[in-house]
């Protein structure tokens, strides 16, 4: 279980990205974090594993306080939090296998990792994960030879090889086409359920968030403005999160399923945000 209390972050530039966020994510819950660009979504998940150092507040994972850990302690705590990135963040010039195995870096010593002599169990687990994400036989391909969806699968495998109890997912679909986006989200959902993993997923696409998350948290200017089940997200609430706009086409009706031609009719606004996120 992840507990966040009064988390605040002020950048040296003076920007207050987070203004005292409190949040509890129970074991196995998939939570989507939505909000406009610059709302602090990215900062929030990076404060959890302290890739960004929070200015104030406490983060506790499974009873262990993350904030205040020494460097060494932090490295060990990070092993419990797998992170998945928007631009995949694979080491492009390494092979798929090396990328996946890099998920074990927190567990093996330097020389082992230097000579790529990972424990047999780790390698076996890596193979199993590659099978599971649908990339069997890709282990010797170089990461920069893969398509976007394949790269994200490698990213997922890398995060899961850490044997985490929590996944921090930063815009997993922002660089993907709509169909691949759904496949990736579905894969994440299935994997979380199989392994009882909690996940915080930053996502721009409200429809996708509603489809795959169990809980939605809306962030605006560093503050939580909505926290509840996906089906309760209404036009009003979206206005509260994102500001004034015609939201009637965006929201998924509770019973609708199947593949709509456009997953989000408000493609213009969302795509613009996506592009903004890409730059």
């Amino acid at each position: 279980m992840l507990v966040i209390e009064g988390l605040a972050k002020q950048y040296p530039t003076g920007d207050r990205a987070l203004k005292g966020v409190s949040l509890t994510v129970p074991k196995g819950q998939i939570m989507a974090l939505i909000g406009p660009s610059g709302a602090g979504k990215s900062t929030l998940i990076r404060c959890v594993n302290r890739l960004v150092e929070p200015t104030a507040g406490r983060v506790t994972l499974d009873g262990q306080p993350i904030t205040g850990l020494s460097r060494r302690g932090l490295r060990q705590a990070r092993r419990k939090m797998g992170m998945i990135f928007q631009e995949f963040a694979l080491v492009e010039r390494l092979t798929v296998m090396e990328n996946v195995l890099s998920g074990r870096l927190g567990y093996v010593g330097f020389w082992r990792s230097w000579f790529r002599r990972f424990p047999e169990a780790d390698v076996a687990a890596a193979f199993a994960l590659l099978d599971r994400v649908g990339l069997a036989g890709f282990e010797d391909k170089r990461a920069d030879a893969l398509s976007g969806g394949q790269r994200q699968r490698v990213g997922i495998a890398r995060a899961l090889l850490q044997h985490p109890s929590l996944l921090l997912v930063d815009e997993p679909t922002a660089s993907l086409d709509p169909k691949t986006s759904r496949q990736i989200m579905r894969l994440l959902q299935e994997l979380c359920r199989e392994r009882g993993l909690a996940a915080i997923i930053n996502i721009h696409d409200v429809a996708l968030a509603q489809m795959f998350a169990e809980r939605i948290v809306g962030l605006r200017s560093g503050e939580i403005v909505y926290d509840g089940p996906p089906d309760d997200v209404s036009a009003d609430i979206l206005t509260r999160i994102y500001g004034e706009e015609d939201w009637s086409q965006t929201i998924r009706l509770p019973d609708e399923d199947g593949e709509p031609e456009m997953p989000h009719a408000d493609a213009g606004a969302v795509n613009r945000e996506r592009l903004a996120g890409l730059t």
């Binding site: 092979t95 296998m97 090396e98 000579f115 790529r116 047999e120 390698v123 076996a124 890596a126 193979f127 282990e139 010797d140």
Partner: peptide
Amino acid sequence: MPVSVRSGTKVWQRR
């Protein structure tokens, strides 16, 4: 091939 099967389990080496 960097991947070989040794006593039933797949073994991976960089080269």
